[in-house]
Design a protein around this nucleic acid. Structure first.
Lengths: 251, 251
DNA sequence: TCAAAAGTGTTTAATGTACACCCATGC
DNA sequence: GCATGGGTGTACATTAAACACTTTTGA
């Protein structure tokens, strides 16, 4: 992947590890570059998509990468990824953000030792953030050629989303503020990768107290049909609504 | 990941920054100290305990801390925590190790910016690793005064263990190779914090295919009683045995 | 009146807890 | 025999998937 001199300009210490003396503390701290990355997912046109940008320069020129970048001074990883998503890809409307995992394979970056902490970010289905020209949404099920270990990070984020849809109210982060049950079942289908019957989803989420009726409904379309009731999530913060049915305390 | 120069534009606020001047190269990489920590848990005398060591020097002198330390050159975080547990606290018999989370609060370390990636490590109940004098096991439910954010990391690890006991076979990592059901229910009780009926635990774990009978049994004690059958976990690697009962694919 | 989409009722199945009862052993 | 701890059988509750049926609308 390395094939011209510009690599050195961007990534000089191609030698992996870096030592530095910090704050007058005469120790042998091993310092490493650290970046925050985000798997930003959104349901678009009935399909789960991930936000990627195309690398214009080596390494991995032409391949697609997760948005993110280096951790700033005095910045937590969570603040860092929020800042970078806002600045670089103009995504400010995250309905949910959580840490996924930290990748530390010494060979994950071909030129220099770089640790990456990945986040899972969700954007509700109703909005369409403007993103730069080199940035776009790709189906999570059909990823383009991707840089570094980013493809496996996307799969990790997708896996986390699927799991959490089963035992938390994280659906609030995929859906717009109000929705019909058939719309919501479409979001679940896209995220889970299999059909979700709207009729049963309604009962499950109502029983768990995740959603409630707004009292309003949307008129039926040209082809007729009963008007659909509008629902909303009762809270728009993550809650575990289905503590595991097993091994629960007696009584 | 250097995003084609945007990093420089976006990160002008890099003051107070730990900058490494390396090899005479003026690079903009923000480097930070990174350490791996481990929440090592074991059931000891019917109680869930965590391995801690007592700090002899400031900061947080006299408080208790998680084992771990700085990431070495060319070392992944997982390899690093394994090495440090073996070298520093002589723990080599981890039955399970998984990444928990990365802490990055700029103020988490009073003296210098330090990121920490925490792991959850489990030691089976039958062994008793020799640990240094300044190191000891403490009940996870009654933690001593702890350094930095380590107390909350322990709680995070305990929470992870409780959750995984419900839907994975992670019990294999708490139990010795063979065990009676009443012993196993004791481990579950210690880890979960509530009673677990051995009779039902047996059926649940058998139905899920997690455990199997060895065919042997242990003689009853002085007070009599039927001899207890010996069981073992069918696999000693982590498996999800109870995919969530909800929102599963049709068919 | 008919088609279409939404919503309700009911059946079936899986899972897990509680609890009564039976079994095997030591004394 | 009988106390003790282990093991089995069974009743009950909860959950949710499947599917037939009813309701409400547009044309």
């Amino acid at each position: 992947m390395t094939r011209n001199g510009r690599d050195r300009v961007d990534n000089p210490e191609a030698n992996g590890q870096v030592r530095a003396s910090v704050c007058g503390e005469a120790d042998h701290a091993v310092l490493s570059a650290h970046e925050a990355l985000a798997v930003v997912l959104q349901i678009r046109a009935g399909e789960l998509c991930v936000l990627l940008w195309r690398r214009a320069l080596p390494p991995c020129e032409g391949e697609w990468a997760l948005p993110g970048g280096r951790l700033g001074a005095g910045e937590s990883l969570g603040a860092s990824i929020r800042r970078q998503l806002a600045q670089k890809v103009d995504v400010r409307d995250l309905s949910h953000l959580e840490q996924l995992e930290t990748r530390s394979d010494p060979d994950r970056h071909p030129q220099r030792r770089t640790l990456a902490t990945a986040y899972l970010g969700l954007v509700p289905a109703n909005i369409d953030p403007v993103v730069p020209a080199d940035t776009g949404w790709h189906p999570a099920a059909l990823l383009p050629p991707m840089a570094f270990d980013h493809a496996s990070i996307v799969r990790s984020g997708h896996h986390r989303l699927r799991a959490k849809l089963s035992y938390t109210n994280v659906g609030f982060a995929l859906a717009p503020p109000e929705f019909t049950m058939s719309e919501l079942s479409g979001y679940y289908r896209a995220a889970l990768g299999h059909d979700v019957a709207a009729t049963n989803l309604r009962r499950v989420l109502l029983r768990r107290g995740q959603i409630e009726e707004t009292g309003r409904s949307v008129p039926s379309g040209r082809s007729g049909g009963r008007p659909a009731a509008l629902f909303r999530f009762r809270t728009r913060g993550l809650e575990i609504t289905d503590a595991f049915a097993v091994l629960r305390p007696p009584g």
